[in-house]
Design a binder for these strands. Structure first.
Lengths: 137, 137
DNA sequence: ATTATAAACGCAAATATTTGAAAATGCAAG
DNA sequence: CTTGCATTTTCAAATATTTGCGTTTATAAT
């Protein structure tokens, strides 16, 4: 099956510099190459590609899902909910959990990009103190 | 700080039977108790509550995020991307990973509800065969 | 009780996303 | 090349979500 032109361009966009783009960002950038493309074409293409495993979709706390090309080093992210900092972590420990769950539950994992939210080192104790001073629930 | 009435009702809704509700479902159900409530009030309340850690937000592959009250047994889900089946798994192995990552990256984990996508046992080999017969990329 | 301040809410407008149905395109078989 | 079928795209309309801003409500201080 030949890949549609929109899909090709989207893959190209997502291949630039480990891009994590939202549907809107993709739509906007696409318009500079295919000026008349319709938004629903983009949404449907993204849906298709995600289901086909060509791209991954994740919530990185930006308000909308971000899309990423699959391939390259498998990795995962820790996202700080206070300052938005994104740390990339290696696959190994996550992979171990996944393999364990696959055996345990006879489940074939598809998720290959984990996003975990929390507070980075910088945002930890300082915030606690601030909160203690400011609010009293 | 006193909790707003909308927040109280939302918490009540989410406390019924391990509910995983979308914003729309919450909005609809809320209207039966507060007929004149405005959608933006609901969206803003959900955002507030999520940020305050009163509820958790996750993508269970239903097209929209689902909200859940926190508290009760910590658990996670395996969601089958073919048939939509949802398995609940115990916290322990996930918790071990989280504790490891916290130590390793000095990161304080907030995520407490993991959703992992894949294929359940029923949807595994059958689909492979079907695909092999049907498509030839 | 009165006033000041911040949080929550409603409303209307702007955006974003989804959906159904028709037109266009690509591909394979005849 | 022409027909048939499946996929992709468009368009318009329906939904869903977000945003700015003015109003109300709650809370705390005077």
């Amino acid at each position: 099956m030949k890949t549609s032109s929109v899909e090709l361009i989207i893959l190209d966009l997502l291949s630039q510099e480990q891009a994590h783009l939202t549907a809107q960002e993709i739509y906007q950038q696409l318009r500079s190459r295919l000026p008349a493309v319709n938004p629903s074409t983009v949404y449907r293409a993204l849906e298709r590609m995600a289901h086909a495993g060509k791209i991954s979709v994740s919530d990185m706390g930006r308000g909308a899902m971000v899309y990423e090309a699959v391939g390259g080093e498998r990795h995962h992210h820790l996202v700080c909910q206070e300052c938005g900092a994104v740390m990339t972590i290696e696959d190994q420990p996550v992979n171990e959990l996944f393999r364990y769950l696959e055996k345990q539950y006879h489940f074939e994992m598809i998720t290959n990009h984990l996003i975990l939210f929390g507070r980075c080192q910088n945002c930890q104790s300082p915030v606690q103190v601030l909160k203690a001073e400011t609010s009293k629930e």
